[in-house]
Design a binder for these strands. Structure first.
Lengths: 142, 142
DNA sequence: CCCTTTCGGTTCATGTATGAAGTATAGCGC
DNA sequence: GCGCTATACTTCATACATGAACCGAAAGGG
């Protein structure tokens, strides 16, 4: 009867593990001054061909627009992206990757993949597949 | 060839699912003005017999002390806990559950368990067990 | 064409988390 | 008992996330 609080496969187990894994990866990204949030934004831009209106960036990162305003502020301060006027819509602003931003994206992606391989390397291929399936099942439309 | 970015059982899958599940539970707790952070603190106090020095609370919640200072500030503003001087150490302050805090803890715990059952109800018992095992394996000493 | 609505971004208030620095007290060695 | 170090908490700066309120610009109806 060793059940003191945290249930076996419960909420806290999931959240704790996610936090621990995230912290692991972030600590490595820290070496090049990136966070996962920043890297995700850089990757979204790179995947979209170097630039996106801020609202679409918010869409891709699945977060609210005010978050993007701040995140891009920080990325701009880091010199990794720049805001440019949107030629097709005078309301809009484009976030554009700078040269440094492209490099940071490449480096950060490499580091992230290494860290990820490291963490998930504890799992067999079957286990990794099972994990993916479980995540799918828990989060409607992930 | 539908692999556009997110790898099958990767980091983002885990983090996204954890976030989604957390948001699900938090949205229900919101009905009684609690967050998971606040509930976790209340539960830690309840489990410890109604009161704890702030530092120990930080230990139990696995976070830094400055976070507890602020969290207890908010709980105090909500009237759920009170700070009391520690009779054994003039440096210390005890966080003590108020009557309202005890009630909020009971209600919040019930809501959290319902929400949790709801979310994890999508899994069979075997799947839940497998999830627990995977989380264990990913997070050293969770 | 103007008016209203809608859309894109920013700003502000707030919650949660971290880490560095500061203050007060405790406790130890001598 | 003095002084040094370690501990308990707070404060401040920062990062990341949300939602509400706001403004300038686009777009549609009359």
């Amino acid at each position: 009867m060793n059940r003191k609080g945290t249930s076996p496969a419960g909420l806290f187990s999931l959240l704790h593990t996610a936090n621990a894994v995230q912290a692991q990866v972030e600590s490595r990204l820290d070496a090049i001054g990136l966070s996962l949030a920043k890297l995700a934004a850089l990757r979204a831009l790179a995947d979209a061909g170097e630039s996106l209106p801020l609202g679409q960036l918010a869409g891709r990162l699945a977060c609210v627009k005010s978050n993007i305003t701040q995140l891009v502020d920080r990325l701009e301060a880091d010199g990794l992206v720049a805001r440019q006027p949107d030629p097709h819509d005078r309301r809009g602003r484009l976030a554009v990757l700078t040269a440094a931003g492209k490099k940071a994206c490449r480096d950060g992606t490499r580091i992230q993949q290494e860290a990820e391989a490291n963490v998930f390397g504890a799992l067999t291929a079957d286990e990794a597949a099972a994990l993916g399936a479980l995540m799918q099942k828990l989060a409607p439309r992930a």
